[in-house]
Write a protein that binds this DNA or RNA. Structure first.
Lengths: 140, 140
DNA sequence: AAACATTTTAGAATATTTCTAAATTAATTG
DNA sequence: CAATTAATTTAGAAATATTCTAAAATGTTT
């Protein structure tokens, strides 16, 4: 069975974000962060929670994902119309997107160089630079 | 008033794509291509058509946008969850995305260099490289 | 013009996300 | 530790964007 140790980790994250450690948030934080980096949708996370017998509504999953994103614990990745992925890797990096399967894969920030793009228009600042390398199945 | 000349242009595009020049497709092609490059949603294009007294349903606008995209006349740009933009500029280029207003602006392909990214995983080929520079309003 | 294939259409269906107001839970206070 | 207050969770409704369906209309070919 799953030990209790990982609670510490999840709890730290919540405190770092200034979010009350409620039962739902703790459980979701554990599902999200006690594993290797991942890209997950709200529906998927909700299914995982139900699977782990964590009682949480889909609305709370959405709320929590957005709170975590605002707090910088997650990053929202948009690659397909009508579906948001939440990335537990918040470091500077980019993505491969497999158009066939809809899967995402991280590319470390150092592996891609985006050089000399125009400076941000007046009144704006660059919030982020997203590089998405879209992959299609190889032709025969 | 609008002349009849532009029909030629739109018609050429349809033929080039192997699409029957129906009334709706012609009208939409004119709205899309007889102007400077643009980024438009299905709803927006439908509104423009209604405005121009072109009788066309929203379903047809969606069908047509996808047919044009498949034919390479348009390019779909996904930057926000739950909303697709269609870009009449199909040449190699990238985008500024203004998070405040939701506006898109082209960046010529030559203005950005994406250097030495990992090669495509086995069995895949790079369909496209999207660079999205997300802009936030400047802080005070 | 008749026959056939393609396209268009309205409206229903689906999918994802957000909203709402009531119920619950966590934190604070006495 | 009970009472009070504030934050959170919830189910379900609502909103939003898109796709589907099957019938009607249109375009093409013969």
């Amino acid at each position: 069975m799953t030990g209790t140790r990982p609670f510490k980790h999840a709890l730290d994250r919540l405190q770092q974000a200034g979010l009350r450690p409620t039962r739902q948030r703790l459980a979701l934080a554990r599902l999200l962060f006690d594993k290797v980096d991942r890209h997950i949708t709200a529906e998927q996370l909700h299914a995982e929670a139900v699977d782990a017998e964590v009682q949480v509504s889909l609305a709370t999953v959405y709320n929590t994902l957005h709170q975590f994103t605002d707090a910088g614990l997650l990053r929202e990745v948009v690659v397909e119309a009508g579906r948001s992925y939440f990335d537990t890797n918040t470091s500077d990096h980019h993505h491969f997107f497999f158009e066939g399967s809809g899967n995402l894969q991280d590319i470390p920030g150092e592996s891609v160089t985006v050089a000399h793009f125009p400076s941000a228009p007046a009144g704006t600042r660059v919030a982020r630079v997203d590089v998405i390398i879209r992959l299609a199945p190889e032709e025969a």
